[in-house]
């Protein structure tokens, strides 16, 4: 999951546009600056690559690894894809 410091976000949308798996979207909640900070989509394939964290010019994003359960789930999905190929 990602944690966003909402009031530090300036709404450049770099994280949203440059996420390799398109896991982010702008939220519909305005922050103090009057922009829409990003949030994770309900359905997402976030693999914790932390690119959004590095590319955020305003130090607003932190990527936090989720529970083990989630990781094994995503591992299964990757395995499934590999089998199909």
């Amino acid at each position: 999951m990602i944690e966003v410091i909402k009031d530090w976000c300036k709404g450049c949308d770099i994280c949203v546009r440059r996420c390799p798996v398109h896991a982010l979207e702008t939220s519909d909640e305005l922050n103090k600056r009057g922009v829409y900070p990003p949030k994770l989509k309900e359905e997402n394939e976030c693999n914790y690559c932390r690119l959004c964290e590095l590319l955020c010019p305003d130090f607003a994003i932190t990527v936090v690894a989720e529970e083990r359960k989630e990781e094994s789930k995503s591992g299964l999905i990757i395995g499934g894809v590999a089998n199909e190929v």
């Binding site: 009031d7 530090w8 300036k10 450049c12 010019p57 305003d58 130090f59």
Partner: peptide, 10 residues
Amino acid sequence: LPTIFCNGCG
């Protein structure tokens, strides 16, 4: 923080 940099500045 937040920084004084403009929106989209690197």
